[in-house]
Design a protein around this nucleic acid. Sequence first.
RNA 1: GGCGCCUUGGCGGAGUGGUUACGCAGAGGUCUGCAAAACCUUUUACACCGGUUCAAUUCCGGUAGGCGCCUCCA
Length: 469
Amino acid sequence: MMKIYNTLTRRIEALQPQNTPLVTIYTCGPTVYDYSHVGHWFTYVRWDLLVRTLKASDLQPKWVMNITDVGHLVSDADEGEDKLEKGAKREGKTAWEVAKFYTDDFIRGMQELNMLMPNELPRATDHITEQINLIQQLEAKGFTYIVDDGVYYDTSKFPAYADFAKLDLEELQAGARVELNTQKRNPADFALWKFSPKDRTRDMEWDSPWGKGFPGWHIECSAMSMKYLGDTLDIHAGGIDHIPVHHTNEIAQSEPVTGKPFSNLWMHSNHVLVNGDKISKSLGNGIRLDELAEKGFSPQVVRLHILESHYRSQSKFSYDSLEAAKNRLQALQAMADLRWQIREAGDEYAGPDYTEYQRTMLAALQNDLDTPKALAALSGAEAGSSNPIVDFDGTAQEFRDFLQFVDDALGLSLLTSKDITPEQKQLIADREQARTAKDWARSDQLRDQLASAGIAVRDTPFGSVWSRA
RNA sequence: GGCGCCUUGGCGGAGUGGUUACGCAGAGGUCUGCAAAACCUUUUACACCGGUUCAAUUCCGGUAGGCGCCUCCA
């Protein structure tokens, strides 16, 4: 029923959970050393959509997303420093304070975007023991070696290392930009545990069998996903950039220990470009949610814009498209506000077949999260909703069910809008009376009055309908 | 240096070997007391050059341009 493109096989496959209806999902979360930008939100919203789609498909997703609050190295050139420590230096705080601040910011962003909360949001620093334990198991199996600055994973011991990303290790070796630094045995080898510098104390450091230090970035995902979701995940998801390094390394760390596949299905979200460029620190083009809100684009608009492109295509971010999304959302909201204006009597008018639109949308989402197609169906329903809903044969309930489905599946929060006040309703009734009496001056005056309260009124063959301007 | 991807109408963005994506915006029209909404029409849409085919935007090859990864990265 649910079909997903699997990076492992490079094909679209039917999802086959190990213990239906349970679906275990692990998604790579943020490194909390700076604000999240739209690029991050594109990815996270897409995983939120995955979980929503599974729920709408009567499955029971168990979703774990990690918080990386230690160990993510800035670069090879910045030896001994990780992103948290760097952020701390920048802001005159401890690494712990930095992590807390940006974790809170991230969770606030999730809430603003109406994302579902993962079942677990584990922090790397809360799972040092599990990580050490996993490294010990790798050590016992002979996959590690120790050099001056840490414990490393020997990728040559894992023959399948290059398979996932279809890496060419020979070319990697010959590549001009790969620096053969330190004492690594192979260019692709990576740190499992890094030692603290001899001359100073880090904000974040722990004792280990190999000496005081901190875990490498990759090991946390293996350790925490296995702790919360078992040896084999149903779905592991992350940004497309994680394929060649981070996810490759996760597989290499996990499968030798368990002897099982680390994840049956891998999903990767493509990047969003801003003015044709990837979002990066060096370009300084990372736009935050609060900046967008200042420009009049609510998180709800951002969310709709994210859904307008497919998660596997490289999408573009621009204010023009946000403007389009904003207008589109307003039309959708107007449709949702028809639920306050159900006509009780009469069977003159049959609205769209909302049940059919709902089926189309769900089928689109189940087909590798085809959000553009789902939105096309939603807009089809919206276009057919210009007249009020007339309640006969349960049509009103079908309409309400449809709106509930849209909110559940897409998270657009259409149902959070409130009804207008009794006074405003009276103004509309008065205006209809004035129109009947052909008192156009009073009619227009009442419409202006409503408009100043942000309420637009239009006249249909079935009476006046209001919407929020 | 290696690997891979992309190029669709004003903008964004799907998809397909022959038939309307969809959204936003512009122009004209029908309707309306006026609006709004809806509907209709509209500016040769599928980078360029070849090839395969009865038929290609959709498959193959090449050209140009853009991008991603191989290094931290959503």
